[in-house]
Write a protein that binds this DNA or RNA. Sequence first.
RNA 1: GCUCAGGUGGUGGAACUGGUAGACACGCAGGUCUCAGAAGCCUGUGCUUAACCGCAUGGGGGUUCGAGUCCCCCCCUGAGCACCA
Length: 814
Amino acid sequence: MPEKQYDHNQIELKWHERWKDAPIYRSDPSGGKPKYYVLEMLPYPSGRLHMGHVRNYSIGDALARYMWMRGFDVLHPMGWDAFGLPAENAALQRGRQPREWTVSNIEEMKRQMKRMGFAYDWDREISTCEPEYYRWNQWFFLKMLEKGLAYRKKALVNWCPECGTVLANEQVVDGCCWRHENTQVEQRALEQWFLKITQYAGELLDCLKDLEGNWPDRVLSMQRNWIGRSEGAEIDFTLVGTETKIRVFTTRIDTIYGATCVILAPEHPLVSEIADDALRSQVKDMIDRRAREDAADLKKEGLPTGRLAVNPFSGEQVPVWIGNFVLTGYGTGAIMAVPAHDERDFEFCTEYSIPIRAVIRPVDGELPEKVETPFSDYGIVENSGEWTGLTSEDARARMAAKAKTEGFGEAAITYRIKDWGISRQRYWGTPIPVIHCPKDGLVPVPEKDLPVVLPLEVQITGKGVSPLLEVPEFINVKCPRCGGAARRESDTMDTFVDSSWYFYRYCDPGNGAAPFDSKTIAHWFPIDQYIGGVTHAILHLIYSRFWTKVMRDLGIIENSEPAARLFTQGMVLGEDGTAMSKSKGNIVDPEIMMERYGADTCRLFVLFAAPPERDMPWNESSVSGQRRFLERVYRFVTRNLDRRSEPSKDAEADRQGRRKLHQTLRKITGDFENRWHFNTSIAALMELMNELFSLEERLGGETLAEILPTLALMLAPFAPYLAAELWEELGNEGQVLKQSWPAFDPELAAEDQAEIVVQVNGKLRTKLSAPYGTAREDLDRLAREDAKVQVFLTGKQVVKIIIVPDKLVNFVVK
RNA sequence: GCUCAGGUGGUGGAACUGGUAGACACGCAGGUCUCAGAAGCCUGUGCUUAACCGCAUGGGGGUUCGAGUCCCCCCCUGAGCACCA
């Protein structure tokens, strides 16, 4: 009889048809099951699915399927951050070639996702570019405005000439735009909207502690780094001849007697007050040069102001300089330079022949006569008046306290993180719901008028000002307060606002009265498992933590963190060794892979090639192995269907077959519960198939009747189409996912003979087989009697014997 | 420069608590089947050797009966941060 051959097209298209209109599963909180919320990060922002996405979703989908079979009520939504949609709509309407994302691409992506057989809650689909989503973005914005968490100010901001818009600090990568990596970002002084993420800096940092173990260390340390807390003091130096105070931030107040000048950032407000025209133009040059050059190899430059400032501790007058290495955005934008105890200050002061004076000595060392290299460790304070003799630690605390009581400073904590600039001069994005009235100033749009929606008829100019300014119907409005003529804010929100809370909206996507129902959120949150690339470690993942804390303080949610566990999966690297992405043109199209090998093979391949957290260079030469494996499974199951009623004939074969089955089950269950190394799970399944092939003829019906359906169930998380097909072929009703994950029987999985490794001086000499629980002395005797061991023992003296029961005997000989 | 992750056959990777290094695949070689090929199936495959032995987890040292795994030093690769006072 000719065997049935595995035909992926026939099987997958059949099930694809069946699943198309009815979701493979959907969550049901009323069922009384424990909840499990698993979510993959947005397929952001590429409009074209590639194998990188397939790998990402295969990991989450396998987990979701497993948890579903384990009896959890799984929430696994799939949404589309289709923020390009209105822009492309507008472009299409006037016959322009769509640029990056198109409506059809997004539809195409959805189709491909369904074709891959991913089991999402399709009903919970949301789109963050729709007016309903704008409404709640704007609602949150107004709440933050009310609480002083949103504000507008003129500031130096990052400007991407290619995007024609402002970017947040987090969106600047190596001085370039995160979306145009060869475009240098410029600094411009503009009136912009900010969200006060700095108010939460301390909490964002402190809560990282609670995430330890559940979030990857890499992400935690990146966030710590980004938030950048440093503890120190702010101290006022008084400008000689004036009442003006120059406030500096230092972490080493204990070194203040060694301060030999004060250095201002070139952008420091005081500069324009004390500089004459000549100096001002030099400062301007300095700023320009710094903007052009790479920060890493920028030479330290300074300009003397000719002014002096008084050190409040020593009373000493020190010169005031302007230095290109002093950052305006960190601390107070001014520093005291202590060249003897800081490398940068040392470099600067050496360059300009500013005195270098040591005031800290090593605990077990001397104060140097002449400073050759700066000593920046803690030590003992010297030459510092009443503080001399204290340790650095003591001095820091006491001197800060003194500054406070004397009124010339205080202990202070500074963060590196800055407020989140959310203004964008783009067309797409949520309009910021504010009206500029000549009489009333900034007037928030009343809640009843939300959402403010984007006009469709817009000319996208790319000229660097918002195209919305060219739409009079949008811009010209009446002031809600006085009714007079006013102008609408033309900036739109950063799309990272959308992604900061989209996963909350999934829980209650249709809510028209609120962003979501708080009780529903309390049920689903926090997200049990969030999965995504490490690329968002300090963008999305810090914004959404911030947003969560804001929502908690608004009293609409209870959780303080969005995701209990985070998993960062590795990237799929294109042939050029860089991450697969559309902009690099190195993507591999899943459509072609699916046609050639089938969706199941693709999924199995991306899971088998490497453990999920590791990067995976694309090399499809081994796909055929996964394909062969599925063919073997299919042939084995279909040709043994009818043998399930046969009587048993070989008890030993039956025992071996069942043992391997339960061992495999134990292995896969363990992989799911502990570390998601699906590559080893799949390897275990392959081992099982190899064993079954060699036992096939000898297996009895009863054993086959246990093995075949279990095989289908074990495949369900990885190869859903084949699992469904086999499940049906086996004469079962219903979906595989609705079955329980099979439990393994430890007794059946246990080997009955232990393999004992026999070593001499730690080197493997032979292996023995002995029943479990064999006594130490018996193991010793068995090992000594072994002929191969004898060779290494004769003529030697056994000094020591190490016996690990059921495992190992090691003779130490001389 | 600082922080983190990694370095194992020709290739992807396995070894989960210090106890058989190389599971499982790809590739390669041989066999079987066939008029022939494809696909199956079987065997072999770290290096060295006829075989035993020996040598092997980036390099060097250490702890241990025993180290890919633990400790110290160094080299390399990738990622992140980078004048943060």
